[in-house]
């Protein structure tokens, strides 16, 4: 499983509003997205986040993995996250 690092320039608000301080771009994410980003900011591993997702949102591990992969692809494309 991979380790990821959220950009130091990314500010995340309680409402799920994201602001990249070095590019001026802003985004909004839903509750699940905010949950994943906040856990990535706390340097949790993919395995830990998947486990937390299954508990928090009452979903099976395959659904959690699919949602996580899809969201991470989005974050990588937007350069908000890098793989360590």
């Amino acid at each position: 499983m991979s380790e990821y690092k959220i950009s130091d320039n990314l500010a995340v608000s309680e409402s799920g509003f994201l602001f990249m301080a070095n590019s001026g771009e802003s985004f909004t994410v839903n509750e699940t997205g905010r949950f994943i980003i906040n856990n990535l900011k706390e340097n949790k591993s993919e395995e830990e986040i998947l486990s937390l997702l299954t508990n928090e949102f009452d979903i099976d591990i395959d659904t959690a993995q699919r949602d996580f992969d899809e969201f991470l692809t989005l974050l990588r494309n937007l350069k908000l996250v890098e793989e360590l």
Binding site: M20, A21, N22, G24
Partner: peptide
């Protein structure tokens, strides 16, 4: 953040790089 059809910025945000 917002550019008019004349290319003028009518909204913008401070960034740090």
């Amino acid at each position: 953040m917002y550019i008019t059809d004349k290319g003028k910025g009518w909204a913008g945000v401070t960034i740090m790089d």
